[in-house]
């Protein structure tokens, strides 16, 4: 009987949440110094599913539910990391960083530098970001630029299951602190509307997705669309639609904000001559401005149309659906911006 040997294996499809937690599980199996702590990471499995099944597999000594005490347990993660463990710490919502940011930017991010490289902080701080489900001003923000602005932390922002697993494995293996931001809308949760792209093929084995390397997720020639996280899915949808009309958009998923793969952006813009940045974070002083500056510093004449951006406006996230949907960088705004750019 050789039939089974020649049979192609079924492509396994996972949600982003499942892929992410599988990445953690594989590293925990490989490396006993890895452990997880945060609010509701145990029996609940993470409010957005990031630690589903881990308590059952590894028990409460390695999957640790914490009190609502973010300064306390993020600081404890830092201390454990400086003593050689590899904590994966969850801050439930990025919006909560206001109660614990000192540990993050003054300690986690600076200890390696202040110690002249003598003390490493190999720690992952993961957190849910993003809106679109009417959770209002304090539970819907992205805020990745706030982290990316301050030196000493890598920042990764996956958009799909494959990258979620590979970036988590890379983040755990990194010898420095990594901020891992997963958008609730890409997790593939059964209780939230989702794009089919939030469930996708994921290899069973461990693999790394390199931190700081962008991916061209939709090749094109007319316009470069640079984005991250849930907006990648929207941009892919729009690019596929426009393909049928002869508008060829190249969509770049940065995947990491720190380090920022400026080269990937420059290479694409050199080809297309047009740049649109789509960002669910606030408009001003953020990713879109940074990428505009990147072009301006390199060669402003690369652009044959003015730089364009579709971002969250500089307004707190409103509750009412009509207002929030108008503010989000959705498919309609993206499509209109691309059409306008290629006409320019």
């Amino acid at each position: 009987m050789t039939m089974t040997e020649t049979e192609a294996p079924a492509v396994r499809r996972l949600s982003t949440a499942k892929a992410l937690s599988e990445g953690i599980a594989l590293e925990m199996e490989r490396d006993p110094s890895v452990f997880v702590m945060g609010e509701d990471v145990g029996a609940y499995g993470g409010i957005f599913g990031s630690t589903g099944g881990l308590l059952e597999q590894f028990g409460p000594t390695r999957i640790i539910d914490t009190p609502i005490s973010e300064t306390g347990f993020i600081g404890a993660g830092i201390g454990a990391a400086t003593e050689g463990l590899r904590p994966v710490v969850e801050l439930m919502f990025v919006d909560f960083f206001g109660v614990c940011f000192d540990q993050i930017y003054n300690h986690m991010a600076k200890i390696h530098f202040e110690s002249g490289g003598n003390v490493a902080v190999p720690m992952v701080l993961m957190m849910a970001v993003g809106g679109g489900y009417n959770d209002a001003a304090q539970h819907s923000q992205c805020l990745w630029a706030s982290f990316a602005h301050m030196p000493g932390m890598k920042v990764v922002v996956p958009s799909n299951p494959y990258d979620a697993k590979g970036l988590m494995i890379s983040a755990i293996r990194d010898d420095g602190p990594v901020i891992y931001m997963f958008h609730k809308g890409v997790m593939g949760l059964p209780w939230m509307a989702k794009n089919p792209r939030s469930i996708g093929p994921v290899p069973e084995e461990a693999y790394e997705v390199p931190i700081g390397k962008a991916a061209v997720v939709h090749p094109g020639t007319d316009v470069t669309v640079v984005t991250v996280s849930l907006s990648v899915q929207h941009c892919q949808d729009v690019a596929e639609k426009l393909d049928g009309e002869g508008i060829s958009a190249e969509v770049i998923d940065l995947r990491s904000l720190v380090p920022l793969d400026r080269e990937a952006v420059l290479t694409s813009v050199a080809k297309t001559g047009r740049l649109l940045v789509v960002d669910e974070d606030y408009k001003s002083f953020g990713l879109s401005g940074e990428l505009a500056a990147t072009i301006a510093e390199q060669d402003p004449s690369m652009l044959r149309a003015p730089f364009a951006r579709v971002t969250y406006p500089d307004v707190p996230v409103p509750y009412a659906r009509s207002l929030e949907q108008a503010a989000l960088p959705g498919r309609e705004r993206i499509e209109a911006a691309i059409r306008s750019l290629v006409r320019a």
Binding site: G72, F73, I74, A76, G79, T82
Partner: peptide
Amino acid sequence: IIAEGMPVAVGQALAFSR
């Protein structure tokens, strides 16, 4: 930063105990 070293010590103790 005042008091912010205290949680870090808790984490060091956690590592020692583990």
